[in-house]
């Protein structure tokens, strides 16, 4: 890893000011960024560690009943404390391994938008709002392809607001070496319809499976999924762990399992 200057702001205002520097890079829990920097796939003159910014850590419920999670909140904290949204707590409890969950953060995961990360599926399915110092971004506008998001250079996630679905579940088909999903599906049933978000499958990153959403909005049952054909395998990730057709098939299987688990 190339050397850098580490700065440790203790307030959001200081963090935002530090990130105005062209050389600066925000550091969440570092569980992806530090290995990437060790491999010299990323470098920065200045790293701005967000772990000391207390005001963007922790979980609360807002007046609209949404679960609001500070951007620097670790996966372990979400797993333990997001009791108002059990499917989301369960997702957080299955990211990586215990030591990774003690450092990795929700803001870091969503800002990175790895095509196989868990949180993007939860945020997109629950129609979460991504909050930054200057604006709020709807999940539907936020995810813009593999490792691409609506965030500007130096813009950080201060909070993520999750509407709580009537029923929800996250089903993850794990790739055991990396502990990332090979394919995972988050299903969320709201009073006005069902949202289905898929991670690990598409080379465009997390996506909503529209056909399943339509079918499940009129009949929220695993049988409603079994009548569908699997999504098009054309844009699916193909690698040594599974080709596109296999992943497309898994999308259908994991969606049906998630619906079953949500009941």
């Amino acid at each position: 890893m190339y050397d850098f200057e580490l700065v440790k702001p203790s307030t959001l205002q200081e963090a935002v000011a530090a990130l105005k520097d062209d050389e600066a890079q925000a550091l969440g829990g570092g569980q992806t960024l530090l290995p990437t920097m060790k491999a010299r796939l990323a470098m920065a003159g200045k790293m701005v560690a967000l772990s000391g910014v207390a005001e963007i850590k922790g979980i609360c419920t807002d007046d609209a009943g949404r679960i609001c999670i500070g951007g620097a909140t670790t996966h372990a904290t979400v797993a333990r404390e997001a009791t108002g949204f059990p499917a989301l707590a369960s997702l957080a409890a299955r990211i990586g391994d215990p030591a990774v969950r003690n450092r990795g953060t929700i803001g870091g995961s969503l800002a990175n938008n790895d095509p196989s990360a868990c949180y993007p599926a939860g945020a997109l399915a629950a129609n979460a709002v991504i909050v930054t110092p200057d604006r709020e971004i709807a999940a539907d506008d936020y995810f813009q392809g593999m490792f691409e998001t609506a965030l500007d250079e130096g813009e950080i996630i201060t909070e993520v607001k999750f509407p709580v679905p009537e029923a929800a579940a996250y089903e993850k088909f794990i790739q055991p070496a990396s502990r990332f999903p090979l394919v995972a599906v988050f299903v969320a049933k709201f009073s006005d319809g069902v949202r289905v978000a898929v991670t690990g499958a598409s080379s465009d990153g997390v996506f909503r499976w529209a056909e399943a959403e339509a079918a499940l909005s009129s009949d929220f049952s695993a049988e409603a999924v079994s009548g569908l054909s699997a999504p098009d395998a054309g844009g699916m990730i193909s690698d040594l762990h599974g080709d596109g057709a296999y992943r497309a098939h898994l999308v259908k299987v994991m969606t049906a399992r998630a619906v079953k688990a949500a009941h």
């Binding site: 570092g30 530090l34 290995p35 772990s51 030591a99 990396s178």
Partner: peptide
Amino acid sequence: SQCGACVVHVDGEAVKACTALAQE
């Protein structure tokens, strides 16, 4: 950060010491 040989406790929690910065 795959293997866990470097796990230590930081403020009481298990952490992979190869994926945390000393200055932080």
